[in-house]
């Protein structure tokens, strides 16, 4: 197993000095590898990266997000995706190619306040991210408990190959819709929902903790078993 050194860092901290490949949120300054965010720095043989513990969601194509409709225009819907950019769902993505604002009433599908599980279809930073709801499970979220966590902690909530989120869903018998943007909707029995929400909040609070999986298992009253190790290194 490769030795990985971890360090708590803040912006400007020199994580390590030497010939490393700077990964995410790391800048090389001469021989110094410098952190650009508050988080956990990881020094591995092949490179240095920082896993940030705070920050806004920046849209990426193919991401799943939970969006809230905040405006209905003549041609589509604008959704708050908890980001600096507003998601846009065009009418033709919902009504099909023959969509016409004259014949189709957008309000019959989604209204202001509705939550959508959507995919980011396209985003290139010259225009606002485009959303689509084509795909299994996508579309309006009819019910459930809304939970918000830091978007930076979503990867930890999902876990390796979905281990953490599947475990929470299985142990609480809940359906959990996770947006990469930190918006989560939990649907299940009242007791199951309460447990799942508590587990998600525990991940939010303890994302930097080493024994997080065991803590979540204990919270949900399950036997403590380790998360399966990944094959290969922990690079992206």
């Amino acid at each position: 197993m490769v030795d990985i050194i971890r360090k708590q860092v803040i912006p400007g901290d020199v994580i390590v000095t030497g010939d490393y490949r700077p990964g995410s949120f790391v800048q090389r300054r001469g021989n110094d590898m410098v952190a650009l965010r508050v988080g956990l720095a990881e020094v591995a043989q092949n490179g240095v990266k920082v896993i940030p513990l705070s920050g806004a969601y920046m849209p990426r194509a193919e991401d799943m997000v939970v969006g809230k409709v905040v405006n209905v225009t003549g041609y589509g819907w604008e959704a708050d995706i908890n980001s600096c950019f507003v998601g846009y769902l065009p009418g033709q993505f919902v009504f099909g190619r023959d969509f016409s604002p004259a014949t189709h009433d957008l309000m019959t599908r989604f209204r202001v306040g509705d939550l959508l599980l959507a995919k980011i279809e396209a985003f290139d930073r010259t225009k606002d991210p485009q959303l689509s709801i084509r795909g299994p499970g996508l579309g309006k979220i009819p019910q459930g408990e809304i939970v918000r966590i830091s978007p930076m902690k979503v990867p930890r909530l999902i876990g390796r190959k979905g281990y953490m989120i599947n475990m929470i869903a299985d142990l609480t018998a809940c359906n959990v819709k996770v947006g990469q943007n930190g918006m989560i909707v939990v649907d299940g029995t009242p007791e199951g929902t309460e447990k799942a929400v508590a587990a998600i909040n525990l991940v939010q609070e303890g994302a930097h903790m080493a024994d997080l999986t065991a803590r979540v298992q204990r919270l949900l009253g399950a036997p403590v078993t380790p998360e399966p190790a990944a094959e290969g290194d922990s690079g992206e």
Binding site: M1, V2, I4, I5, R6, K7, Q8, S24, L40, E42, K49, I51, K153, P155, R156, R160, A207, H208, M209, A210, D211, L212, T213, P226, E227, P228, A229, A230, D233, S234, E236
Partner: peptide, 16 residues
């Protein structure tokens, strides 16, 4: 006050 967790198995950590 949480200790730095260099001893944690890699699988416990987040991936970007």
């Amino acid at each position: 006050g949480a200790a730095p967790d260099s001893s944690a198995p890699a699988a416990e950590m987040m991936e970007a």
